[in-house]
Design a protein around this nucleic acid. Structure first.
Lengths: 339, 339
DNA sequence: TTGAAAGCGCTAACAC
DNA sequence: GTGTTAGCGCTTTCAA
């Protein structure tokens, strides 16, 4: 019933070693034997067993994907989209993805993910912020690591990030192009690198257009970039400025909160104030008005990570260490030209 | 560096066979030796290699997940949510999920998914409709199969379905309880078992309340249950009936289309007509008004499938063949009480 | 360019 | 109750 390498060898009239060499594309096989073997493989419909290969070659054909529980479970499917991106790319690169989640409380005494302990992955993708202890433990395993949307505080790892600075620039430029000058920045905690970079982009673009960057127009006090904080921050911003005509929110959630506040106090969007968000969460198009935003290609983040990791695994010495995935301005109805 | 079963055996002063027996929880090991071995395992931080176990035991610890390209890629994350559910449950049952997608055009000559050929999964979950040829080829492999949201035309496989009939009943009952009597059914092709069952539930509940089932109130002509068809169907339904006070749409997409049409011709929802959908797609809450619907717990579908498959794999003779996942009425603002 | 043979780390008969 | 041993199916020196 089950076909093994022996059957192929017998049928092709060669040794199993030769068959193996053909399978692994070794160059020291003559065209003739290669053909013979290939034919036998095809005739018998043979595929080498993963377990057997893995046992001897130390290559499993699997990639691990690690993220924290709360990232996996949160409603907005940001990280699960990234994961889907890796699944997508894995198919192309002939890998399978093993997913695991771990608690935020991971301590140095906790066991590593099972796929690590069982030596069942050739490399690992880590998405979003994870406990530093995890990275420390993982480092000892000498297993290739790639990070997505998180810059680990130590080590020299390949990283896949979205281009936050350029996104901040694009969003701001869009507002400037529409004639806005009094553009507020609605941010969260600037300790978060993404938010800091978006702010950098905002400032750069203003300066480039000789618009004075005013700290009164910049809100960075919110502890978390969530809707409720966007609501509060918009309120506070408006109390300090009476001439804001546009807002660049550091993410869609905060943009949503800001829009809510403006609606509550009767300020029309985009009639009176234009708003740009960042992320392009799924619900944006159902908003009223639909939100203009910077789209983060989550799928691409996952795809790039698999590419990077795949390079690392098959080819030890590669230059690429950091991939910046471009973002894209999506113009909807929350922004408007002014005179 | 790397710890093997030999190291554990040496440290515990027993043979590797004994260690293996302890690992597999074999009962014919004395408490004493078990303890000794367990301690050695812990001290050395040993975990058996997946590949080695797989090679000899024929158990990989992996489950395959198959769905078609278009199901994987479609915007509404129905099947990807199911997949996420299997990932979730896999963690609990100590499995990993290997995902693969395949084209709708799968023919008998196409190769089976790689994880099947490489003998890298212990069982397979198939979500949504797949080509019959696939099932036929898979059957020969004697590998446990579980279907989600699809009843294969042949074979005797365990299946996980949502409870469409009961959902249809619940939706209809909700409208009846609200005082409605002229309730239309907005359906797609009744060849689709889900739609047929929802219609069955609708009819049953009407009959139970002695409301005559009128074919004029039932639309089943739409080829696909999509928004555009909902729009058309609503239009046609209204042209034949002038006293419809409520609509049960066979899914949210069609409900959306219907709402759009009603908005276009100035009929208020729920003021004039109440609407119930089915599925609970993510965008429902952003609708105006938010849609009352029957929620299909996608995650649960995946979870149940893993449970079923896990039972099959570990324990050959089990009774459960069909799991009906309950659905739930989510009341929002598209339905209203009438006098 | 090919083959013989060792062995990857584990499990499962079968002895003892 | 525990140990011995023979592989599982493959890759990889090393010889030829």
């Amino acid at each position: 019933m089950k076909i093994t390498i022996k059957d192929v060898a017998k049928k092709a009239g060669v040794s199993t070693a030769t068959v193996s060499l053909v399978i692994t594309n070794n160059s020291r096989i003559s065209q003739d034997t290669r053909k013979k073997v290939l034919k036998a493989i095809k005739d018998l419909d043979y595929t080498p067993s993963r377990s057997a290969r893995g046992l001897v070659s130390k290559k499993t054909g699997n990639l691990g994907f690690i993220l924290t529980d709360d990232h996996f479970l949160r409603t907005e499917p940001f990280y699960t989209r990234i994961f889907l991106g890796t699944e997508f790319a894995a198919h192309v690169h002939d890998f399978y993805i093993l997913l695991t989640t771990l608690p935020n409380t991971f301590s140095i005494d906790d066991p590593l993910p099972r796929f690590v302990r069982e030596k069942n992955v050739d490399g690992i993708i880590i998405a979003g912020k994870v406990p530093t202890t995890l990275i420390q433990k993982l480092e000892k395993y000498k297993i290739p690591l790639v990070f997505i949307d998180y810059v680990p505080p130590m080590g020299e790892f390949p990283i896949v990030l979205m281009d936050n600075i350029s996104g901040g620039e694009t969003a701001t430029k869009h507002l400037i192009d529409l004639g806005h000058k009094n553009i507020a920045f609605l941010g969260g905690d600037v300790q978060h690198p993404s938010i800091a970079d978006r702010l950098v982009g905002y400032k750069r673009m203003l300066e480039k257009h000789n618009i004075t960057v005013s700290s009164k127009l910049i809100s960075t006090g919110s502890p978390e970039p969530i809707k409720e904080e966007g609501y509060k921050a918009m309120k506070s911003l408006l109390s300090k400025n009476n001439n804001i005509s546009a807002v660049f929110a550091c993410n869609d959630a905060m943009a949503l909160g800001a829009m809510q506040y403006l609606k509550d106090i009767g300020i029309d969007v985009p009639g009176k104030i234009s708003i740009v968000g960042f992320d392009d969460i799924e619900s944006n198009i159902f908003l009223n008005p639909p939100l203009t935003t910077i789209r983060v290609p989550k799928i691409d983040l996952g795809v790039e990570a698999v590419k990077l990791l795949s390079e690392r695994i098959t080819n030890k010495n590669i230059a690429r260490k950091k991939v910046l995935v471009p973002v894209e301005l999506i113009i909807r109805e929350s922004t408007r030209k002014i005179s």
